[in-house]
Amino acid sequence: MDAVEYPEQHSAHYPHMEGGTVQLLARFEGIHGRIFVIEEKATGARRYYEGGSFQSHAWRSGESCFTYVHLMKALLQPARDVLVLGCAGGTLATMLHRQGKSVTVIDRNPLSFTLAREYFWMPSDVRCIAADFKDFITYNRDCFDAIAVDVGGPGFDYATEFDEMTCRTLLGRLGHSGRIAMNVLIEYGMDLLPDIAGKRLAGPGLQTWIIDEVVREPDRNAVIACVPEGHLDIQWQILPDTVATDAARWLVRRSHLESADKYAR
């Protein structure tokens, strides 16, 4: 989910906004509010809004227009089978599947799977399971090479939903030399949410890094990377041209809490 929001009060006029440059393709009632799928007339790219939040943005190729999704894809490159928590338009699942990976997507709302397949080009053979992500990681004993976390929505509390117990359970679903990539939304400049979540996910043999979107807006994305390598080597040059310029707004750093722990010793 991207940090940009679309005003819910304008939802009835989506097809007429932006000078008539978009058209409404579908409207549904979702768990978190009204869902709109709209298409940009000039490019054919599609957007998915739910409850006023901008959930997905995809080109006709099925690839995401969001930089953070491409960063998550790059972080998950070594994995063969990936568990994806959160569906929305299914762009990350689509991109991973096209790399030849086995992909399992978990979302408590089965409508998301329908939207992803019918409007956002997610392949039909991506495995989709309708379940609460906490229930799935607790009761399903399968392990995965990698876990991608991109859940959220209006009122979603990351610190509560990903408490220490949940993070330990999540780590228990990782296979040997597994890795985690997690997207979070930051509400203000010095919010330590990614640092706190990263510390909770720093299991044995995993190094935690944060790829932070350096912008002045009150809402922004950050990607938490927990990987077995001793360094984080993101090949920025392989990002598609559609997001390459935006990549300059992202900074790779270590956790601020890690630094604080070091000096506290």
Rank of each mutant, 00 (worst) to 15 (best):
G90W: 08
T169G: 01
Q235R: 15
R249G: 08
E164P: 08
A181D: 01
V126M: 05
R117Q: 15
S177I: 04
A26I: 06
D195E: 03
V252C: 11
Q9K: 14
V184N: 09
M182P: 04
R46G: 07
D246Q: 14
I35M: 12
R27V: 13
K101S: 01
V103I: 14
G33E: 04
L85A: 07
P78C: 03
T91S: 15
G86P: 09
I38L: 12
A146G: 13
R173N: 13
D132A: 01
K41M: 06
A74I: 03
T114S: 09
C65D: 06
S61V: 04
H231P: 00
T91Y: 02
V215I: 14
D150T: 05
W121G: 00
E63I: 01
V105W: 08
G86T: 11
R108P: 00
Y119E: 05
L251W: 10
L193T: 15
E187C: 07
A88V: 11
F36N: 12
P228N: 06
M182Y: 05
A26M: 09
T208N: 04
Y14N: 11
L83E: 10
E63N: 11
R60D: 09
A93E: 12
S56Y: 08
E29N: 13
F36Q: 11
I211S: 06
V243L: 11
G30Y: 11
R249N: 14
S259H: 13
I38R: 15
K101M: 01
A148E: 03
I211F: 04
A202I: 01
T43Y: 07
E164I: 15
G44F: 02
S53P: 00
G100P: 08
P240E: 09
H13K: 13
A58F: 01
E63M: 07
T242R: 14
A45L: 00
V103W: 05
D191Q: 05
T114G: 04
G90F: 07
I106D: 12
I211D: 02
L85D: 09
E18Y: 15
H231E: 15
H176S: 07
N221Q: 06
H70R: 07
L257C: 04
P110Y: 02
E258G: 09
T245N: 09
F66W: 02
A202P: 02
Q55M: 13
T94V: 11
Y263W: 13
A202S: 14
A264Q: 12
F156I: 11
G189Q: 12
S112C: 15
K73V: 05
W236L: 00
D142L: 13
T43F: 07
V84G: 07
T242M: 06
N109I: 11
I186V: 15
V103A: 05
I106Q: 12
I129K: 04
E63D: 13
D81F: 03
V223Y: 00
Q55I: 10
D145I: 08
W59V: 00
L257E: 03
L76H: 01
N140D: 15
G155R: 13
M165L: 14
A247H: 10
G178H: 01
P204G: 10
D246L: 12
M165K: 15
K41F: 00
F133C: 06
S177F: 10
G90C: 07
M72F: 04
R127V: 12
N140K: 08
D233S: 14
G30I: 12
W236I: 00
A248T: 10
G152F: 15
F162G: 05
A42E: 13
I147L: 12
V4L: 13
L85N: 11
Y6I: 08
S255G: 06
E39W: 04
A247G: 10
A131R: 14
Q207P: 00
